[in-house]
Structures are given as structure tokens and as C-alpha cells.
């Protein structure tokens, strides 16, 4: 136990007040503000891989690591669509995942925000729309509020995307 404590103290707080050019910290502050305003400080996201290669998953995980720690802005991932404010979808929608994606979307309460994450979710990427096994991009299957490009998108781009959904007026009123 002592060693664990020592390691924790040694590493210290690495969560970044990022001096980065891409302004992660400002983005985070904006996001936190928006989440406070619209969702009383807590945004629950349900994640669905609708056919991804698992590259996007690695970056969503990274957004949760101690450097980015998106949970500090009020973002949490929920195991059930019933509690979800937002659906985060990766991958082109495969014909074998189409029904599961639709059912997950159906199971969500309003406002049913949707973020399509990554080039595949946006436009089927390298797998292509002219493919027997692909039902379409995410927007072809369910209503999408924002799209993040990238193969895969970086953790910063993921935060940006979530912010973009919060800004979208698709579900206003």
C-alpha cells in the first residue's frame, strides 16, 4: 500500500492544464460550462461501436486517461442507453450492427444527442459506402448532431466533437 501511495505521489497530478496550441483546457472549460447549463453538470454518454476497426475506441479510452481526464468536465460513460444524454457512435454502420444501433437509439431518453466519431462514422471511410456489408454512415441510420473526422480522431478532437453536439440546435426546444 505504501508503495502505491509513493508511486501516486511521485507521479503527481499529470492532468493537464495543457499548454497546447489546440487549446484543450479552454475547450474543456467551455464544455464544462455547457454541460452545467444544459445537463446540470453531468453528461452521460452511451458508446456504440457500429463497425469500427477499434482504433477510435483506443482514442476514446485515451480521452479518459489522466492527461485528458474528460470526466473532470462532467462527461461520464454509462453502460445503459436508458441513462444516456448522448450517443457516441464509431465505425461505418455494418449491416449486422444496424438493428442494434437503432435499438440503442430508441432506448435513449430525450434529447437523444448523437455524435458520429471518426471518418468511418462520418462517411464510411476506407470501407466505403459502396460495400455490401455496410448499411451506411451513422447519419444514414439515425439523426446525427455532429461529426468528428479523423482516423482516428485525437482525444482533443473528441472533446471538440462533444462540444459541437452541445452547441447544435438540432434538438433545441
Amino acid at each position: 500500500m505504501l508503495r502505491i501511495m509513493r508511486q501516486i505521489i511521485k507521479v503527481g497530478t499529470i492532468t493537464e492544464p495543457l499548454p497546447t496550441a489546440d487549446g484543450f483546457e479552454q475547450l474543456g472549460a467551455q464544455l464544462k460550462g455547457k454541460i452545467k447549463q444544459r445537463f446540470q453538470g453531468s453528461l452521460a454518454i452511451r458508446f456504440v461501436d457500429a463497425g469500427s476497426c477499434n482504433g477510435c475506441e483506443l482514442e476514446v479510452h485515451a480521452a479518459n486517461n489522466a492527461y485528458y481526464d474528460i470526466e473532470r468536465f462532467g462527461v461520464s460513460f454509462t453502460p445503459s442507453p436508458r441513462f444516456a444524454d448522448m450517443l457516441l457512435v464509431t465505425g461505418p454502420v455494418s449491416i449486422n450492427m444496424k438493428t442494434a444501433l437503432e435499438m440503442t437509439y430508441e432506448a435513449m431518453p430525450a434529447p437523444k444527442l448523437v455524435l458520429a466519431l471518426g471518418d468511418c462514422a462520418a462517411n464510411c471511410g476506407v470501407f466505403g459506402q459502396d460495400n455490401y456489408a455496410i448499411a451506411g454512415s451513422v447519419a444514414d441510420i439515425i439523426p446525427v448532431d455532429a461529426v468528428v473526422h479523423g482516423c482516428p480522431p485525437t482525444p482533443t478532437a473528441i472533446i471538440q466533437g462533444i462540444l459541437q453536439v452541445m452547441d447544435s440546435h438540432h434538438h433545441a426546444g
Partner: peptide, 24 residues
């Protein structure tokens, strides 16, 4: 569930295009 028809998709492509797909 995540079957994306990769083997079919590879057909008719150049090796360069195929390589990009294989990386995914």
C-alpha cells in the same frame, strides 16, 4: 457484428489501396 466485407473490398484494388485497408 462488425463484418465490413474487407475481403471483398480488397478485390479490384491496387496493392497501395489494399495496404491502407489492411491497416484498418
Amino acid at each position: 457484428y462488425v463484418h465490413k466485407g474487407i475481403e471483398k473490398r480488397m478485390q479490384g484494388r491496387t496493392a497501395d489501396e489494399g495496404l491502407k485497408l489492411a491497416g484498418r
